[in-house]
Amino acid sequence: MDAVLGSMTERGFRIITYSRAGYGASSPAAGRTVADTAADCAFLLTHLGVTRYLVAGWSAGGPHALASAAVAPESVEGVLLIASFAPFDAEGLDYIKGMGAQNVAQFGMAGHGEPAMRELVGRMASAVRGHASADVATEMASLLPPVDLDVLTAEFGADNAANMDHGLSRGDEGWIADLAALTSPWGFGLDAVTAPIELWHGTVDRMVPVAHGQWLAEHLPTAVPHLEPGQGHLSLAIGSLGEKLEVLRGRVADRATSRLALKSRPST
C-alpha cells in the first residue's frame, strides 16, 4: 500500500482505514446510506479511542468523508476531498457527462431496479476480480486518460488489483450497495458540513469528471478548491496524499489558533 499511503505515513500521519459494509470481510448491510457508513466510521474510531481526527475520501469515498464530518462534527477537524462524486440529484449538474463508458453504464442504471444493477455489477466485477493490473487497465480503458494509465501500469497497479480482489473476495455486495447509496439521498445535507475542506480534482478525470468537483466547491462554503490542470483520477492522488493532508492540517491549525486568539481577546 506504499503507493497510496506512503506519502502520508512518511509525514507522521496515523492512518486508519475500514471496509464499507459488503466489502472484504465486512458483512453486508441492506439499504445502507452514505450517512450509515459514516456512522460506522464514527463508532469504529470511538471504539479505538480516537476523539479528534481528519477524514479523507477519494472518489466514492468523498461523499462518505463529507458524511463523517456531518455525522460527527465534534470529532472531525477537517476533510480532504479527492476527486469526489457530487450528489446524484445535484441541481444543474449533468452527472454522467464526461465519464468513461463503464461509469456511464453504472450510473445510467439508476432507476432500472436492483436485478438490472446486480447483473451489470456482476459482469463488471468478474472482469476485474482475480486479474493482473494490465488486464484491469485494459478493462478500465475508457476511464483512463494517459496520465492515469501510466499510474495504473506502474507500482500502484499491483496494489489496486490486490485491493479489488480483497474487496470483492466474498461477492459483489459492497459494490452494489455503494452504487445504490451514491445514486440515492445521502442521508445528510451539505450544509451540515462545517469543518474546513480541502477539495482536489483533476481536469481530465474520466471516472468522476471535474464538473463534480466544481459543483461541490460551489456548494460547500468551507471548501478551498484545487482544480489541477492535466491531472486525472489516479494521478491526482498517488504519491501526493501526504502533501494534501499537510495543507489541510495547516489550515486546521490556523483555525484553532484563530479561535484561541478570539477567546483570549480582552473584552471592551
Rank of each mutant, 00 (worst) to 15 (best):
Ala83Tyr: 01
Glu74His: 13
Trp58Gly: 08
Ala86Trp: 12
Gly98Thr: 09
Tyr95Arg: 10
Pro63His: 04
Val76Pro: 07
Thr46Asp: 15
Gly100Glu: 11
Ala127Arg: 14
Gly100Thr: 06
Gly130Phe: 06
Val121Cys: 13
Pro115Ser: 09
Val76Lys: 04
Arg118Ala: 02
His47Gly: 10
Ser84Trp: 07
Val76Met: 03
Pro73Thr: 12
Asp94Ala: 15
Thr46Leu: 00
Pro87Tyr: 13
Glu114Tyr: 07
Gly111Phe: 11
Ala101Pro: 03
Asn103Asp: 11
Leu80Val: 11
Gln102Val: 14
Met99Pro: 11
Phe85Val: 10
Arg123Cys: 09
Ala86Tyr: 09
Ala110Ile: 02
Glu119Ala: 15
Asn103Val: 06
Arg123His: 12
Ala127Phe: 06
Leu66Asp: 01
Ala125Val: 15
Ala125Gln: 02
Val55Ala: 08
Thr51Gln: 13
Arg52Asn: 04
Val55Gly: 07
Thr46Trp: 10
Leu45Ile: 09
Gly62Pro: 06
Gly111Cys: 02
Tyr53Leu: 06
Ala69Cys: 12
Ser126Gly: 15
Leu120Ser: 02
Gln102Lys: 14
Ala127His: 01
Gly61Ile: 08
Leu54Pro: 05
Ser68Tyr: 02
Phe107Arg: 05
Asp94Tyr: 00
Ala86Pro: 10
Met99Trp: 03
Lys97Cys: 04
Gly113Asn: 02
Trp58Asn: 01
Ala72Ile: 00
Ile82Glu: 13
Phe88Tyr: 15
Phe88Trp: 15
Pro73Val: 10
Ala70Arg: 14
Glu91Asn: 01
Leu66Met: 12
Ser126Pro: 11
Gly122Pro: 11
Leu93Arg: 11
Ile82Ser: 08
Ala67Asp: 09
Glu77Met: 13
Arg52Ile: 06
Val79Arg: 01
Gly130Gln: 07
Ala69Ile: 04
Arg118Trp: 03
Gly130Leu: 05
Leu81Trp: 02
Lys97Ile: 04
Ser84Met: 13
Arg118Asn: 01
Ala70Leu: 12
Tyr53Ser: 05
Asp94Ile: 06
Phe85Asn: 06
Ser75Leu: 08
Glu119Ile: 00
Pro87Ala: 05
Glu77Thr: 02
Thr46Lys: 13
Val104Trp: 01
Pro87Gly: 07
Gly113Cys: 04
Gly100Asn: 12
Leu48Gln: 13
Tyr53Ala: 03
Arg129Pro: 03
Arg123Phe: 10
Ala70Asn: 09
Leu80Trp: 03
Phe43Trp: 07
Ala132Glu: 15
Arg123Met: 14
Gly111Val: 02
Tyr95Cys: 04
Ala105Val: 04
Leu81Lys: 08
Met99Cys: 12
Gly122Trp: 13
Met109Ala: 14
Ala65Arg: 00
Ala90Lys: 05
His131Pro: 05
Gln106Lys: 07
Gly57Glu: 09
Glu114Gln: 12
Leu48Trp: 00
Leu93Lys: 06
Tyr95Ser: 12
Gly100Met: 13
Gln106Ala: 14
Phe85Thr: 14
Met124Asp: 03
Ala65Ser: 03
Asp94Asn: 13
Arg129Cys: 01
Asp89Tyr: 09
His64Gly: 00
Glu74Lys: 09
Leu93Trp: 07
Gln106Leu: 15
Pro63Met: 08
Phe107Asp: 08
His112Leu: 13
Leu45Gly: 07
Met109Thr: 15
Gly113Glu: 08
Val104Ala: 11
Ala72Val: 07
Thr46Met: 03
Leu93Asn: 12
Gly108Asn: 07
His112Pro: 00
Ile82Gly: 01
Ala65Lys: 10
Thr51Arg: 14
